[in-house]
Design a protein around this nucleic acid. Sequence first.
DNA 1: CTGAAAGCGCTTACAG
DNA 2: CTGAAAGCGCTTACAG
Lengths: 351, 351
Amino acid sequence: MNEANVNDPSVNDPNASEPPAGTPAAPKRRVTRDDVARLAGVSSAVVSYVLNGTPKPVAAATRQKVLDAVELLGYQPNQTARALSLGRSSVIGLVISDPRNPYFADLALEIDHAARAHGRTVMVLNSLARRDGRSMHIAGLGQQQLEGIIIADTLSEAESETVRALSVPVVLINQFFANKGFASIGVDHFGGAYMAVRHLIDLGHRRIAFIGGDPGIDPREDGWRSALRDADLEPGPAFHVPFEFEGGYQAGRGLAEDATGVTAAFIASEQQALAALSALHERGLAIPRDIAIVAFDGTTCAAYLWPPLSTVAQPLRAMADDAVRRIVTNTAHEDYTTYPMSLVIRASSGA
Amino acid sequence: MNEANVNDPSVNDPNASEPPAGTPAAPKRRVTRDDVARLAGVSSAVVSYVLNGTPKPVAAATRQKVLDAVELLGYQPNQTARALSLGRSSVIGLVISDPRNPYFADLALEIDHAARAHGRTVMVLNSLARRDGRSMHIAGLGQQQLEGIIIADTLSEAESETVRALSVPVVLINQFFANKGFASIGVDHFGGAYMAVRHLIDLGHRRIAFIGGDPGIDPREDGWRSALRDADLEPGPAFHVPFEFEGGYQAGRGLAEDATGVTAAFIASEQQALAALSALHERGLAIPRDIAIVAFDGTTCAAYLWPPLSTVAQPLRAMADDAVRRIVTNTAHEDYTTYPMSLVIRASSGA
DNA sequence: CTGAAAGCGCTTACAG
DNA sequence: CTGAAAGCGCTTACAG
């Protein structure tokens, strides 16, 4: 046994807030622009000129000396300093409520992809926590010097006020309606739902249920109802549950217990659909034979459920490109853009 | 038609990089610490003293004046300036490969939760894109002045070098093994897999398949093999596929075509399991009757699949707390911590 | 084409 | 207990 260790209080103390003596706590000084300038034999301003291509042209020879020094030193500009100086960073914030929702997962991936194409980095923030009664993440948005913010969530009035007061471009995505004072992007929820339900009607279904979130605000429920009305059909039962796995599961159970002759259902999100499928299977119902299903979103996940989901898909790539472009070009003025959806037919609808 | 608009080139030009004339391009100047100081009638240093509680005590009356001014002005400290001054921010980077993997979704949520408890913000970065042949996100990590970085991914040698050179604490999570020079956190993959397979053996299965990623490095495959050997059983077929939905689907198809009498399978991730279930159902196999399944990870999603997955679960909350704590306390020195897994029995194993 | 200098908004040793 | 001042690492008008 090593007595030196036994006697060293910094060892074996799980509460030590310092690294044990001997561990190099990495005081490796970062390479700065001055280091590059010194090595290249130029002023530090010239380093900026070369790296940013602005605001001045630089002689080819000088330029090369700087580039060589950058390479040799492995210099990486400090983005924090750059952001402070410029008044903005190249980080775009993305606010989603819950990363476990397959829709937000796909959205985050597309936003990331689009941002990267512009040399931007995405910072994903989960707003779910505010429902824990903790301080809203939204409130902290102003502290990071973000280049812009994309919010894929529904804001309360107070939150809208907070966000509106921010001095950076904001784009609201995944929105049902125009939002006063904001650039909003959404799909044609009504039209998509209508198309989904119409598909079921065309397949011969006469009693079609709805599974979705809170009643009264969601155009998808209206789309469902309108498609039925236009076909002279009565609306089937509507199940209003939270947009979470558990909500979908509960709705699926409700649907399985239905005794009114429902043969099909339109489910407003694939996160709900995933769990609703489980509940239906649990009750021994076959899909699409006993209950045909069309979902909404068009996530990657939907193709790998059983049965694979027929769904109306959002053009996420285009929407993400649009949102990012409007941040980057600072054109996030008030308006509302809706994108059309497309019907993707798989096994769950029995087509 | 409005001629004024027609003649205004700033309108209707989709490529305009400026907001249309008239749109307030938000030159609302941010409130700074100097504004607060002026209003409170103190020096700007005192504002910092009050807000940070350091390094000096402040007279109660002065303190109140500052607090009032902060409140009145709605002052929020500029975190960029703070980070530059302090040499570190309060943002923790989390690198995951693919947000669509339910495991990473759950992990991101737990890391976020833990970080918030320490007043930190999490910046989620997707590393998936590097496989597109694009520049690695990893390389840019040094530019953001992050307080620390948590990496839930397998690094190449070159990436390890890059990360090791960073001057901030780094914690590797979801790791199979110790990583030279890094603080690594992982579950007992071998033990978890062993437990999963043992569960199937105890249920009477004699021929048990494996579905997972590349062979040769994953302790879960060893755990599967060892549990079988210890029970004097031959290993069943092993399906090696990518950790994505499509991989799981292909493995499921392979398993469904198996003609060697397999009655059960251990699946190394729930993302793969989700899609494998679909393939098995597609071939008309009943679970657990024809094929019993135990998965690995313990995500939220697993409980809502059909049938609900028996699985060995990772103690994500504890692991996330640990990772964040080591960043915040700067104790991310080299070591390897493994956490035990727990068996969660649901319908898929037929217990 | 190149450089000295001010400024971005903070923190904190140092001196009163 | 309070304040003047230097410094974090950049960008960029301004002057040579």
